[in-house]
Design a protein around this nucleic acid. Structure first.
Lengths: 219, 219, 219, 219
DNA sequence: CATGAATGAGGTTTCATTCAT
DNA sequence: AATGAATGAAACCTCATTCAT
């Protein structure tokens, strides 16, 4: 499983720790069914069964099906942002940062089969199930992330690591690739193979596929 | 709308022409709702309302909701294969072929908002709604398309247009990008902007983003 | 088919004759489906298909599905009464009358597979589909027929053909047997076999199954 | 109602006992509507209303409308077989056995208004609603019952209780009569009257209706 | 806290009936 | 007269949510 923050917190009573553990079991079960069947295709019956709780119990931990969806996406999103920040803080080159980022994403793709992150949620039917406020919340986060990323690309260009490419275009390209990789895993069935594919991907992105490089045009 | 084959066929009676037109209206309505809400999220009520027919009428044209989904995907798929063949028959360079392909895809993305083609269907909950035989059918088509594409890449490498990159890897990358572009449109709101983005994308794919090209590694 | 009264009537125009013929085709188709699937289980679609007319056409000849049911039962009932009258007018013994009656019924059972006569209709779900007035109509007819039959039995007793048995009891017994024979055909698959079974039945009814006849009790 | 096996079982929890009771209430309601309107004519709405449960609740106890039908017939069938076995084990004469059998059937006819037993199901539209396997199941049971019965008749003939009549013919006759009696009750409105009618029936079957017995023919 | 029976709104599908052609 | 497309009420069934235990 993913790290369970607080789960060993000494200040919690046994009751509280159990509550948290149960909550997590439900979330794990829900994510796995959401991933397999899609939000509208999953029933609370199946989540309850997979979590080994009764259906009624779900409502002791979450207000509704939508709330369950929201909570999961929110957490995944926070994890993702944490990963980004962590990577960005290491002072690596853009290329190495990208590689790390892709590898982390790959790990998640294998853990959760389908990483229902905010990246994907926008283009997903499940998005319609969120309340307007919650949908807006994710819209905001996505916008901020795009700002940070493009800012970052600009700096890499300024440092001379990248040639002068429009940041938004590169962001869209990379963002789409990562999202796509996480959903399809690029058809790799082991982490090893996927890491190899990632290396090739980075090679292509950085060096291109052309036999001879043209005079690079500036956008 | 898309070209309506046969719609001007002189040999059809008025009845037949109307039937075909109504059938298309229902398919258009269904595609638009499927795209917005996902297969499981859309109700026949909404399709009927948007097509301006009664719910019962849908069943005069399609056997079931699943049949409607299948028919739409099948048609889109055929269109897509037609586009591919057409482009491949022109004897263009790999790069120009890719550009044309992306542009055609872009046009579709704007026409149908969400191009529910076989590319996407595999990674979609709707896939679970198809009967096993129909699901298998699309699986077959997808496999064949991958074979054709990788064969094509190999030839481009042999012709000296591309450096020696593993075909499967490149296929996965391009395929994923196109699919992603069609779903998200790379956040462009006009065809013009999207075509500009496509040019940048091709530049990146061919020449890379690195300031200085490294000694290209061979995979 | 059954005799088509009037169908060769010289005074009818061709139009009228055709109308009558079409009406009959529909009734034949309807009876066969009613018999197979039951009233609620049959659809007008199937009747129309079997009659080789369009669904709309049915409504040119009958006001509703219920009207179709009513008309068929009514006709069968009239036929049945006609058969009864004909047999009764011949001055035969009770035994021979019964034999003729059973044989006629057997023929019908083979013609129509399930003879939806008023005998059966009362104990059939289809009865609920009739309008109250029409249901009452058949109730009346049934009562009159019972009266005639018991009267008849009384006379046979008076003539010394039968021993002194309560007429209502014998009527119920015979009536039930005939109805049951028509529905199940007593599991005979040819008219010949069924006629043999009828002879045995009559033997039993008249002579009983006991090895030695007891002192017949009078009811 | 009928005896409720297990209903006083001490080992059951209150939950389990309630579940069983509710299940029975639904079955009772369903049988009564099936009997009145026929399988295709009854709606789950009406069953639910009569059982005083919501429609959805029916599905907590039965998988489908067909399952409800099956379960009811199955149970009635088992009861019926139990009655048969019990009577046959007493070592009575054929005549007394027949009388007991008819009386027991009469009781059921009054309890359930329409005894949807395997006897009737074959000749009923509802039969088409059963799955092929379930239909076959009842076909088998019916065949075995016929075998047992004809064997029984043969023995009675051997014992000298009956004259030499073809067993199959007698079985068909008795079987049809019983079935018919249960459906129509021979128009009796009290158990008392029906029992009187049964005695007359047996007298007729054993001694015949003829004033003078003919030389009994052997079939 | 945990259960699971009960609910009822809403889903897909069927079908008797109408009506423009 | 004949058609068959269109309708919409009503069928069977599902499932998110509630609540008594």
């Amino acid at each position: 499983m993913t790290t369970r923050r607080n789960s060993e917190d000494e200040t919690m009573t046994r009751r509280e720790r159990e509550r948290l553990a149960h909550r997590r079991e439900i979330m794990d079960a829900a994510l796995s069914v959401f991933a397999e069947k899609g939000y509208f295709g999953t029933t609370l019956d199946e989540i309850a069964q997979r979590a080994d709780f009764s259906k009624g119990t779900l409502y002791l931990y979450f207000q509704s099906k939508e709330d369950l969806l929201y909570t999961i996406i929110k957490e995944k999103n926070d994890e993702w942002l944490g990963i980004m920040k962590n990577i960005m803080s290491k002072g690596l080159s853009f290329k190495e940062e990208l590689r790390m980022f892709l590898r982390e994403s790959a790990k998640h793709a294998f853990e959760d089969r389908r990483f229902l992150t905010l990246h994907a949620i926008h283009h997903t039917p499940a998005f319609k199930a969120l309340s307007p406020e919650r949908a807006a919340e994710f819209g905001e986060i996505h916008k901020r992330m795009e700002e940070i990323s493009t800012e970052y690309i600009k700096k890499a260009i300024a440092r001379g690591e990248l040639r002068n490419i429009r940041p938004q275009a590169l962001f869209g390209l990379l963002h789409g690739s990562i999202e796509n990789m996480m959903i399809t895993r690029w058809d790799c069935d082991t982490v090893k193979k996927l890491e190899l594919a990632i290396d090739i991907y980075i090679d292509i992105i950085f060096n291109g596929i052309a036999k001879e490089r043209e005079t690079a045009r500036e956008t």
